[in-house]
Design a protein around this nucleic acid. Structure first.
Lengths: 207, 207, 207, 207
DNA sequence: TACTAACCGAGACGGTACGTCCCGTCTTGAG
DNA sequence: CTCAAGACGGGACGTACCGTCTCGGTTAGTA
């Protein structure tokens, strides 16, 4: 409760904007990791990092949007989509690492809470889309379009749809936990999907 | 603001439980329809229907759970899954009506908000699963198992997975609106999925 | 700053109303005496006595009104206006004790701040009038009317006006400190005023 | 709310001090007239006239002091105290015009708020005294001293006290509105006071 | 005339209070 | 005597203001 470390500086006036932003994001990350999205309130973040609520309001429209930036700014480095030329192996690696992200290290809880809160917070919804889901969708689409050009996917396959079939199914098991989300699911999902979308040569390599 | 219609009864004594429950659910439905899930708070529901918070706490563990019951109790009548024996047509009808439910009558917003809030509310999560998503998943699984027995699906197809590929992809477009959710998407999704899962005879009927 | 003694009870629910009111008034009195009217804020009072802001808002419309009740409820016991039948002596005693109240014990500062804040706070203005100034005015008027009947005041003297000439002049020196407020002023004021208002017999006893 | 007319100058450099001062005072007067003393904050004045808070802080110690200068600089021209040699008539004219100032053009509210705020703002208190109340007190004292020399007032009358009996009683009705402040009150007040202070000859002219 | 240094106004900062809403708990009074 | 009405403590929201301080554009002083 009162473990907020007030960090009592005696400076009252303006501080460099970057410094304040960094401290706000750091405090947010700590709260997010320790207690989840519900703990990320403007009041607690302000108390924890010594910033004022006014300042936080100037940069982030809602606690959810702040949490999103705090979380996603750390995961942007993972934005790599290896292209070895082997469709099946590449996508399997992506799906597996995605499932691991969601199931290990508690990352799934944060993402689920962010997407969940976004349903009632347009600002957060925009932040999640712009900083997280949309970039990843575009990377996958890029990859699939290259695979199409290489003849690894059937002509006429909707690469946008493919993303929903693969990652969307994973998000579904994350957000609506009526069935388990694990590596086995990811692998089965990939087989089942590529069986309908991959060209004949590729399909023959499945199982 | 104060248009909560205090419904000035002067009766303080106990009323029949069913009567009070019905009024609570009715007030909840009205709030849900008018202002969304955020407006469904115990305080406002109590003020609107003349019940006390104590009463509401006895029956529902959280505002989300109350909203869920209020919403799902109206949609249970739609729990039909026609089985004409025609796999493609039956599933297409189901998917299309599901998409219409989510996109047309504003139902999508409520469901999205409920699933969203469930990410931070275990009681609501349980309610959504038990009263909405799981029954529907089981209906679909039942249907697919019959289709398997009829030889319309490939041997070894994971019918549970099939649900995530189809409905999960739709939920994905609902909850993460980076791409549109519409009938065309549902149809393309169905084609792409069955191409990998349906048996040869069925597959040949897909374009 | 953090000498607010949080008085950490662990009781969350409703407490008896009288108990809460008493604690709120006590905390207010302490703040008023220690730091003046500016320190009486709903936030600090709530923090000091363990009440919630909501509760305080229910009973007092503004911090000033709370301070007024807190202060005046202690001074009501002084509401005595001795009537010995000797106009000059009685009024002199009243004026002198009034001036002492305003100049000693720091009481003047509080009253001045309350009347000052009332100029921009209608709720406080009403509280000051109802609980402090008007009862005292009425007591003086009562006395003067008895003096009129006793023939100690000239026929036609406006007793209401007399109050403004005597106590009003004192308030003037309190609120607009261009000249000192002391016993000598009170005595001179009384002589000068009664010289114009007292009947001939009484007037001859002055000086 | 945001109708503060940002007056979009693009000049960042220094402007003549007098020009800025005038604009600040003008903006203050407008706020004072429109919304009262509470609206005179450094933030709003700065936003309204395009100056920065830094600039305003350089010249005025508190919003109240700024409001006082803004208001009193307009009323200084009224500083005339006619001396026709007729004590009763001259003072009656003064008191009547003072009451009219306080009751008619909304001036009373501003003065009451300024005196009120001065109770908690030493800077404002000094400004009110120096720029408003003390000059007027001195004018009255001057007049009364001349009247003393002319033999129109009793020997030994305390002219300073006389000011509190007359104007102080009016301020009392302004600041503690338990009784009305109007011309009739001023006239009655004057009669009653002069009956005790004027010399015999003058007194005989009162009714 | 171009170029740098000092200055100072615009406004962001930390802090505090406001007034409101909601949650979950508890007293109390009506039936 | 029971239980529902609703007041309670706690906490977050979003806004306004104060008084302090950084920052960058303007101007004055050098090259």
């Amino acid at each position: 409760m009162s473990n907020e470390e007030p960090m009592n500086r005696s400076r009252r006036g303006r501080r460099p904007a970057g410094e304040v932003r960094a401290e706000v994001l750091e405090a947010t990350s700590a709260l997010l990791a320790d207690e989840g999205l519900r703990a990320v309130t403007f009041d607690r973040v302000a108390a924890r990092c010594g910033a004022s609520k006014t300042t936080i309001y100037k940069w982030w429209p809602s606690p959810g949007a702040l949490a999103a930036e705090s979380y996603f700014s750390r995961s942007e480095k993972e934005l790599v989509f290896r292209d070895t030329g082997d469709l099946f192996t590449d996508i399997r690696a992506q799906l597996r690492s995605f499932v691991r992200l969601l199931t290990e290290h508690g990352g799934g809880r944060v993402i689920a809470e962010l997407i969940g809160a976004a349903q009632s917070d347009p600002d957060l919804s925009a932040a999640v889309s712009e900083r997280y889901t949309m970039p990843r969708r575009l990377l996958a689409i890029d990859y699939f379009e290259r695979a199409l050009e290489r003849g690894q996917l059937l002509n006429g396959v909707d690469v946008n749809l493919l993303v929903d079939q693969l990652w969307g199914a994973c998000y579904n098991r994350l957000l609506i936990p009526d069935a388990p989300l694990d590596i086995a699911f990811a692998d089965a999902l990939l087989h089942s999907t590529l069986r309908g979308a991959a060209s004949a040569g590729y399909r023959s390599t499945l199982q």
